[in-house]
């Protein structure tokens, strides 16, 4: 892995960390949801400091270069994240619809009393 990529990973890791902590500070972000991003940022840091882990893993699976391995892993990770995000949005939609329906029915019942 080139020095450039390692430096980039460190920088990105720090930026993510700064973003997460700032959002937490402003209470724009619930602690529960921030874990994924903190973990990601730590992962970047580990990879850039100990690139040997990547060499070993990519060799084991059979990638020609470790950077390909990193790209693909991050791609899959984000896909998975996106999928669970979709699920979460669906659940929120169902909850929101329920809430609006209950509110509407209750206000109708109040008026008709």
């Amino acid at each position: 892995m080139s020095v450039g990529l390692r430096v980039l990973l460190i920088v990105v890791s720090l930026i993510v960390m700064v973003f997460v902590t700032r959002k937490i500070k402003r209470t724009d972000f619930v602690v529960e949801d921030s874990f994924f991003w903190i973990a990601l940022s730590v992962l970047f840091l580990i990879i850039s400091i100990f690139p040997k882990i990547c060499y070993k893993l990519s060799e084991l699976i059979g990638f020609e270069s470790p950077s390909n391995f990193i790209f693909l892993s991050i791609f899959f990770l984000l896909l998975a994240k996106e999928f669970f995000m979709s699920v979460k949005v669906s659940k929120l939609q169902i909850k929101m619809a329920n809430l609006i329906q209950e509110m509407a029915i209750e206000s109708n019942e109040k008026e008709n009393k």
Partner: peptide, 25 residues
């Protein structure tokens, strides 16, 4: 009229279900 008003738009499926909830209650 006897009416139920959603505070925001839920789409036909949501409106239909509200009617069913009212019918059940």
């Amino acid at each position: 009229y006897n009416y139920i008003s959603h505070s925001i738009n839920l789409g036909l499926a949501g409106a239909f279900q509200t009617g069913m909830k009212y019918a059940l209650r």
